[in-house]
Every structure is written in structure tokens, then in C-alpha cells.
Computed example of a mutant assay.
Amino acid sequence: MTTSKLSNDSLTLAIDTFGAELHSIKKDNVEYLWQGNPEFWGRQAPVLFPIVGKLKNGTYTLDKKSYQLSGHGFARDNEFELIDSDKDELVYELKDSKETKRVYPYDFRLRVSYKLTKNRLSVKWEVKNQDDKDLYFGIGAHPAFNVPLENGSFEDYKLTISPAQKREFIPLDAAAGTIKLDEKHTVTASEFPLTRELFKDDALIFETPGATQVTLSNSVNSRSVKISWENMPFVGLWSPYPREAPFVCIEPWCGIADDENTDGELSTKFGINTLAPGKKFKAGYTIEIN
């Protein structure tokens, strides 16, 4: 486990080889990234792969065989290799192993890159199918940001989804960790003042077709975080409830938890990505710190 830093005149970042996970984002010596206090949530910004969220009963079926896989997959709990670095970019890689194949029977390569430009961090994912069969997977982000940022209270902050438009909202069964597609419905709200009760049913999940951004801002200072992406079909917004955790997560996803009525087949799972042999999948998002 090795920590590397990226820095310029605007930001200082720290990223670890374990999970290829962000550990710090500082501006003006103010820490924007949650520091992983296990009293509330011990992680900070895990990479979610090869699933996002939970599987129904923790299992899935592929080629008539059953596998167990924990929520959000295994990438976050594996050591990546730092394969490339320069003054403004770090690239990490995870390959399949005997251990991963016990729960996910594929030859694959996952690369995660972090590139710093002024006050923006670009995070990119590349999944390569190195197998001779179609690869089914989900991938997602789970960065947590401190609330408050320097000063104020939790209730002084808000989340805003742009562009302002009608969106599909997907309810979550907090106890099971599964989504309720039968109860999916359209909502018009795009601005969400932070309250503890906002997260009483766990994460808020929205479909996000097209270019989208989510901004964390407040009424007491000018500090803000903006997460933006082009091609991620879902976003989750989360803070623990009822514990008064001092952070909120903004999570763009190419994948989603199982529907409560799933038959467990990975190839037909709602929101799954399919990658042909030898092909690459690319996606990413940007964190802008102000």
C-alpha cells in the first residue's frame, strides 16, 4: 500500500494503491474529502467494480453457476499497481487473480486514472475484457465530501442536480439493499437542501441520461464541490441515517443494485454493461473544487 500525491497551485491530492482510492483533496489547506472515520463510514472514495450496490441475497448466476459477491464488488479491497505517473496524472491497474475468479469468473483489466488540471480532478475508468466471452459488469464512484466545508452546519448545505429537468427516481429498500423498479417515478425537484431526514430511506437514486452535474454548495461561504459527467446513467446521493455523519456522497454510476424482483442472472441484470471479448469500456467524471 503506497500513497502518492498530485499538486498544483490550486489543489493537493493523495491517492492510495489500495483500491486506487482518493484519500485527500485540499484547497487552501481545507480538506474537502471525508477522512474515513469508522464511527460513521470507514471509507472515503472507493471504486465500485464489478458491481454497484448490492446483489439480492448477495448472489448472482452466470452460465448456470452461482457466485457470491459482496456489495460494491471487490476492487475497493484489492491492491492496484501504479503503472504510470507524472506531475499531473497517476494511473492504476487491477488485473484478475485466483481470488477474483472465485467470485467473478473473468479475465479482465481495470485501469483508474487521476489527472489534475487547475482546480479540477478528472477520474477515468477503463475496463478491458481479456476473456473469450462477453464480460458483464458495473462500475461506479463513491466519493464522500465533508459537510461542513470549513464552517456552517449540515443544514446550511444543499445538493443541486443540473440541468434542472424531470428525472426518474428509483426507490431503495434500505434493509435489503435492493431497488424497487416497480415504484420508479418521475420527480421535478432538482435542488435538495440537506437534512438528516432527506436520507431516511437510504440513498436517493436518480436516472441521469445525458450530461449531468451535481453541486454541493452552502449559504455561509463560497466553498463548493461540483461533480460532472457525460455518460453515466445513474447517480446516488447518500449520507448515513439516523447518525449525524459530517459528510455527503455524490456517486455517479454505470451500474446499480439489483431490483428486488431480479432472477439473479448477471447477463440480464438491470443496468448491467456488456463488453465483448477484446473490447474496452471507458467512462469517467470530473471533480471541481471551489
Rank of each mutant, 00 (worst) to 15 (best):
Asn8Val: 03
Val220Cys: 07
Ser222Lys: 12
Val225Lys: 14
Ile161Thr: 10
Val103Lys: 03
Glu191Lys: 14
Asp156Ala: 04
Thr17Trp: 02
Glu207Pro: 04
Trp238Ala: 02
Asn273Ile: 02
Gln165Pro: 02
Gly255Val: 02
Leu6Arg: 05
Val123Lys: 07
Asp182Arg: 14
Gly42Val: 03
Glu168Pro: 03
Glu93Asn: 10
Ile170Thr: 06
Lys200Gly: 04
Ile139Glu: 01
Glu39Val: 14
Leu198Ala: 08
Lys56Gln: 12
Tyr67Phe: 15
Val220Ile: 12
Thr59Phe: 12
Thr188Asn: 09
Ser222Tyr: 08
Ser85Arg: 14
Ala203Asp: 01
Lys65Val: 00
Ile170Trp: 05
Phe145Asp: 07
Glu191Pro: 04
His185Gln: 12
Thr208Lys: 07
Asp258Trp: 01
Asn8Glu: 10
Lys158Ser: 15
Leu159Ala: 08
Ala175Cys: 06
Pro143Thr: 13
Pro233Cys: 07
Glu155Met: 06
Trp238Glu: 03
Glu168Ser: 09
Leu11Asp: 07
Pro50Tyr: 01
Pro148His: 06
Gly255Cys: 02
Asn129Met: 00
Asp173Ala: 12
Thr59Met: 07
Ser70Val: 08
Glu251Leu: 10
Gly36Leu: 09
Leu11Trp: 06
Lys56Pro: 06
Ile51Gln: 01
Pro148Lys: 09
Asn290Asp: 12
Asp156Val: 10
Arg120Asn: 14
Ala75Arg: 03
Val235Tyr: 04
Tyr60Asn: 01
Leu116Glu: 05
Glu31Ser: 10
Leu62His: 06
Ala174Val: 13
Asp84Pro: 00
Asn57Asp: 15
Pro143Lys: 14
Gly42Lys: 14
Asn290Pro: 14
Arg120Cys: 13
Asn37Asp: 13
Leu94Ala: 09
Ser113His: 09
Val30Lys: 09
Ile25Asn: 11
Lys27Gly: 11
Ser217Thr: 15
Ser228Pro: 08
Glu93Gly: 05
Glu93Ile: 09
Asn231Arg: 13
Thr268Pro: 00
Phe247Gln: 05
Thr188Gly: 07
Arg243Asn: 11
Lys128Val: 00
Ser70Gly: 11
Thr186Gly: 05
Leu55Gln: 00
Ile83Ala: 01
Ala20Ile: 11
Gly71Phe: 02
Ala14Val: 04
Gly58Met: 04
Gly284Arg: 13
Gly58Asn: 09
Val187Phe: 05
Pro252Ser: 10
Ala75Ile: 14
Asn290Ala: 15
Asp16Met: 07
Phe281Gln: 01
Thr186Tyr: 04
Glu260Pro: 05
Ala164Pro: 09
Leu62Cys: 00
Ser66Lys: 14
Lys180Phe: 07
Arg196Asp: 09
Phe247Asp: 04
Glu155Ile: 04
Val127Phe: 02
Leu69Phe: 03
Glu168Tyr: 07
Asp201Gln: 14
Ala141Arg: 06
Ile250Lys: 11
Leu121Asn: 10
Pro38Ile: 14
Ala276Phe: 02
Asn231Cys: 12
Phe108Cys: 00
Ala189Ser: 13
Tyr92Val: 15
Asn146Ala: 09
Ser153Thr: 15
Leu237Arg: 03
Ile170Met: 01
His142Met: 07
